Computed example of a mutant assay.
Amino acid sequence: MNQRPFGQAGQAVSEIGFGAWAIGGSWGDVSESDAKAALHAALDSGTTFIDTADVYGDGRSERIIAAVLKERGGPRPFVATKAGRRLDPHSAEGYTAANLNAFVDRSLKNLETDCLELVQLHCPPTEVYYRPEVFEAMDAMVTAGKIRHYGVSVEKVEEGLKAIEYPGVKSVQIIYNIFRQRPADLFMREAQDRGIAVIVRVPLASGLLTGKMTADTRFAADDHRNFNREGQAFDKGETFAGVPYDVALEAVDRIRSLVPQGVTMAQFALRWILMNRGVTTVIPGAKNAEQAKANCAASEVPALTESAMATLRAMYLETIAPFVHHQW
């Protein structure tokens, strides 16, 4: 597993991390045994970065991670969680020092640790990025020793660019994949110049870029790919990267011919993300051990050819960009 420096944190992490949303909830049923097996497999394959959130299964994801790490013992991987989405309503006014401290205290308990390695503001309303007092509250938690570092998880490129103006922000989590290429235009360079770690989520466009979905694929009632296609529960860009399902399926068919023999489409899509040196780690999810191992193997896939990269860029500009580029 290749490693990349985590911005200014003074350590390196695996370039393929483990996204722990699926083992928490909103991806259909995942048993606790499968969830633990997936995480064990990722760690056995060299993953040293785990991303979770306090709302993933209302803490289930954090608790499963704590249990697995207790079972394994030894050096602790870099565990990042998030705070803010427990607010109801989810408004900028709710991002107070008192609320953020309460969320962090709950995550400390769930993850069974006395200091959280990284806490990310969890896709807060855009107005939050213009409230210095929010970032001052995070600075205070660093000073108090509750958290070691903090960052933000953003929906929009503009939010990421605003966030890195705050000196305490050490990382930005953002959607970046073959169907969401805008971050490469400016954001990645700015983050790299400032020494900001970049965590890439939704790398497979909610599974579309595995190449396994068809027009007949059906999703469970509690799977966000069923209930959030138009943003009914949260930003629609989190589901299928915001691309209309039928448009995405046509694009996936065009991508198939570019995938080298012996490489899965998912591994190809992950390797495309890693071609950008501004990326620190990418966090695909996994529901079982087999998926986790396959994701980690993407670290060893050879670099994509210039021709393949150019073809994917042209396809994006022609087919996908009209639906997503201006929105996020």
Rank of each mutant, 00 (worst) to 15 (best):
L108A: 10
K156P: 00
K287H: 06
L69V: 03
E62H: 06
V243H: 02
Y129W: 09
Q232W: 03
V154G: 01
L274A: 06
Y130E: 14
L108C: 10
A269R: 05
V154M: 07
F49R: 00
K287E: 02
A35E: 10
S61D: 08
G73M: 04
V200R: 00
P183N: 13
I50E: 08
I16A: 09
D246N: 08
L312F: 05
L208G: 05
T143G: 10
I147D: 06
G207D: 00
G145D: 08
V104A: 01
D114S: 15
H90F: 12
Q3L: 15
R225M: 08
I174Y: 06
A205I: 11
L43D: 13
L304Y: 11
A98Q: 12
I65S: 02
V243N: 00
L116I: 04
E127V: 12
G46H: 03
V324H: 13
T214F: 06
T48H: 10
C296S: 14
C296D: 03
L304H: 11
G57T: 03
V157D: 12
R106H: 02
N99I: 01
F268E: 00
Y316G: 03
M188F: 15
E158N: 13
V172T: 08
A220D: 12
Q261N: 12
G10D: 05
D88M: 12
I23P: 01
A97D: 09
L69H: 00
T239W: 00
Y176G: 00
T96M: 00
A20K: 06
D114R: 13
P75S: 13
L108I: 13
N101L: 08
F78M: 14
F240Y: 12
A41N: 08
P260Y: 11
F135G: 02
P5F: 11
V252Y: 00
D34I: 10
